[in-house]
Computed example of a mutant assay.
Amino acid sequence: MLLLIPGPVQTRAEVRAAMAQDIAPWDRDFQAVYARVRERIVGIAHGTPGVHATLPIQGAGHFVTEAALRTFVPPGGKVLIPVNGAYAQRMARLAREAGREVIAIDLPDTRGATAADILPALEADPAIGTVAFVYNETGSGIVNDVEGIGAAVRAAGRRTVLDAVSAFGALPFRLDQHPECDTLVFTSGKCLEGMPGMGFAVARIDRAEACAGHAGSWSLDLSDVLAHARRAGWGSIRFTPPVQAIAAFDVALDLYEAEGGQSARLARYRANADALYEGCAALGLRPYLEKRHQGPVIVTVHQPADPRFDLMTFVEALKRRGVLISNFYNTAAPTLRIGAIGAITPEDIRGAVKAIGATLEEMLPKAA
């Protein structure tokens, strides 16, 4: 089965094989693996040892995103969120339900957010302390301007929380060039091609210390994750983790380095997305985004307008041909949501496009 969703992604056999073991989370051999993973992540983020640290939280991306908002935005504090997709909407909900005051900037889901979008709100309200935003929006496939937004926030003397869940490891970002960034967050099952189960925050140590007591949740307190690591060691974890997923992630990082790191992975994903975008357009499927706004992680195309088309029926029929895509959409208009990331190549994508075409022909036969 070819898994074409924006996470959890298709994985390599070596990564899956690393799951086939029983592990005690407190075992010293595993603790060495866990500590090594944390150190390697800081390196991939271009963080500075002693300035940045990896602070893991078990669970999906929403867990670590909520932990970041709870930790780095004080209770009742104002957080500005540019909302141009489903995952920005979810970030706003997480912040509101954590008791933070959300200032939402509503934008279309067909282009990335820029500094020009957020500056008026920052200038109008000095009480806004943090700008929280999504790097890559897997609702539609757009990419927000992290460099421009970061520079604007830095110049305004505010802080950022970056949801890099579906971007980290492929799209470029250097923490050492973004002192305004309190933390970026991501998960194991996306662009680094590990198994799902762990979220990671790469955070400024001084900010995590300064924000102790903000979270209002022991489970989702990144400051407490840092304090625990300092007490018990960087190979120790507060609560039982998905140990097999962490062991597999260590192997995934080996494969990431062997491929050539961020630039090589981005190049492969971009080639995948281009093949998908152009292949679907050749089938007569209209892309949801203009090519200039199309990111490398997920491609969305409008669903056929034919009344015979049904998304769930199409997904199941395509699955029978060996290709699995999302059976839902979260764009403003109905779309097909097809991932371009994971252990896949442009050749895989071209095969998938053929399967999509054959499935559409079967489902929507032309009149004789």
Score class of each variant (00 low, 15 high):
247 A>V: 06
329 Y>V: 00
316 E>Y: 09
285 L>N: 00
342 G>N: 07
286 R>I: 15
290 E>I: 09
223 S>T: 00
222 L>P: 08
343 A>K: 05
274 D>M: 03
301 V>W: 01
357 G>H: 00
219 S>E: 14
250 D>K: 09
296 P>W: 11
350 R>L: 08
254 D>T: 06
336 L>T: 06
323 V>A: 08
264 A>G: 05
346 P>Y: 11
287 P>K: 11
316 E>A: 08
280 C>Y: 11
234 W>S: 11
355 A>G: 04
270 R>D: 08
244 Q>P: 02
239 F>D: 05
310 D>S: 02
336 L>M: 06
329 Y>M: 06
260 G>N: 07
263 S>P: 03
298 I>H: 03
332 A>Y: 07
318 L>E: 05
313 T>R: 15
231 R>Q: 15
258 A>M: 13
355 A>E: 00
252 A>H: 07
347 E>R: 10
278 E>H: 10
357 G>T: 02
297 V>H: 03
332 A>C: 08
324 L>A: 13
272 N>K: 11
342 G>A: 02
263 S>W: 14
275 A>K: 02
253 L>N: 08
246 I>H: 12
293 H>L: 03
235 G>S: 04
343 A>V: 09
219 S>G: 04
348 D>Y: 04
242 P>N: 06
269 Y>M: 15
244 Q>R: 15
341 I>D: 00
342 G>I: 01
265 R>G: 05
290 E>G: 15
308 R>H: 01
278 E>A: 12
273 A>K: 09
289 L>M: 05
336 L>R: 02
308 R>T: 02
303 Q>G: 06
314 F>L: 09
241 P>D: 11
359 T>Y: 04
353 V>E: 07
332 A>Q: 06
317 A>E: 10
282 A>M: 02
240 T>K: 09
291 K>M: 04
317 A>N: 02
345 T>A: 07
292 R>M: 13
324 L>M: 14
259 E>P: 12
219 S>P: 02
299 V>R: 07
348 D>W: 06
356 I>M: 08
230 R>V: 09
357 G>W: 04
284 G>H: 11
303 Q>R: 04
311 L>R: 06
339 G>H: 02
226 L>N: 12
231 R>M: 12
354 K>R: 12
224 D>W: 08
275 A>Y: 01
253 L>A: 10
275 A>H: 13
275 A>F: 09
254 D>L: 14
320 R>G: 10
307 P>A: 03
285 L>V: 07
242 P>R: 09
229 A>K: 12
300 T>S: 11
269 Y>I: 12
269 Y>A: 06
235 G>D: 05
338 I>K: 10
347 E>A: 08
270 R>K: 14
254 D>E: 13
330 N>D: 14
226 L>H: 04
278 E>S: 14
296 P>M: 08
347 E>Q: 15
335 T>E: 12
277 Y>E: 01
273 A>S: 01
356 I>V: 15
270 R>Y: 10
223 S>Y: 06
261 G>A: 11
279 G>F: 03
265 R>C: 04
279 G>W: 00
327 N>A: 12
283 L>F: 07
298 I>K: 03
